[in-house]
Structures are given as structure tokens and as C-alpha cells.
Computed example of a mutant assay.
Amino acid sequence: MPRSVPRTVLDVTVNNHPGVMSHVCGLFSRRAFNVEAILCLPMHGGEASRIWLLVDEDDRLEQMIRQMRKLQDVHDVRVSTEKTAVFDQLGTVMGG
């Protein structure tokens, strides 16, 4: 069954230290905004990480992005509709 709500990926660059993922995910949780999938990898020698969040595109998304940019450990937030295929491929590999 095709999805009625399109999905997008938030490409987030953050400081890499304990608690950052909790802060980012907590922002979504407090606002009852579901994160469908998460991919996180260290970069720049481990000082920063790149988090990809697969989320539904709804009328609250722009506000979520603005709020995320206010978090102390967030360096950058970009939106990419093209990167959703990565999550589809991972789901296939993982048997989902």
C-alpha cells in the first residue's frame, strides 16, 4: 500500500558526545513527532556525527527544524527528499 504522507530525511550534523542523540530525539518526542528511522555515523575523526532522521513531511516539520537548529550541539540541519532511498535499501538488507 502506497504511503499517503511523503517522507523526507533530515541530515543533521552534531557534536559527537554522550547525550546528543537523546537531546535530538527528545525534541521530537516532546512534540509527538514520530521519527520513522535513524542512521548515525561519526565524522571528522569522531568529533562530530551525522544523523539522518527519516520523518513524515507534515505541517509541523518546518517548526521542528527551527527548534532543532536551536539545540546547542546541532551545527547544521538540511532537508533531503532524495536520501529516503537509503532507508528503503537498509530495510531490504535488514529483512524489513
Rank of each mutant, 00 (worst) to 15 (best):
S4I: 14
S4D: 15
S4V: 15
V5E: 13
P6M: 12
P6Q: 14
V12Q: 03
T13W: 10
V14E: 03
N15T: 09
N16C: 10
N16G: 06
H17I: 08
H17P: 09
H17R: 15
P18D: 08
P18S: 12
G19S: 04
M21C: 04
M21I: 14
H23F: 14
V24M: 11
G26D: 03
L27A: 10
F28C: 08
S29W: 02
S29C: 12
A32K: 14
A32P: 00
A32F: 07
F33N: 02
F33H: 14
N34D: 12
N34G: 05
N34K: 07
V35M: 09
E36A: 13
A37D: 15
A37G: 08
L41I: 13
L41V: 13
L41W: 02
M43P: 03
G46C: 07
E47N: 09
E47I: 03
A48G: 00
A48W: 11
R50T: 08
I51T: 03
L53H: 00
L53P: 00
L53V: 03
V55H: 05
D59F: 08
D59V: 11
L61C: 10
L61Y: 04
E62I: 10
Q63K: 12
I65W: 05
R66S: 11
R66D: 13
R69W: 04
K70G: 06
K70Q: 15
K70M: 12
L71G: 05
L71E: 03
L71R: 00
Q72A: 09
V74S: 08
H75W: 13
H75D: 08
D76R: 11
D76P: 00
V79Q: 14
S80C: 05
S80Y: 04
T81G: 14
T81V: 13
T81K: 15
K83N: 04
V86Q: 07
F87K: 02
G91T: 06
T92S: 13
V93Q: 08
M94N: 12
G95T: 10
G95E: 13
G96I: 15
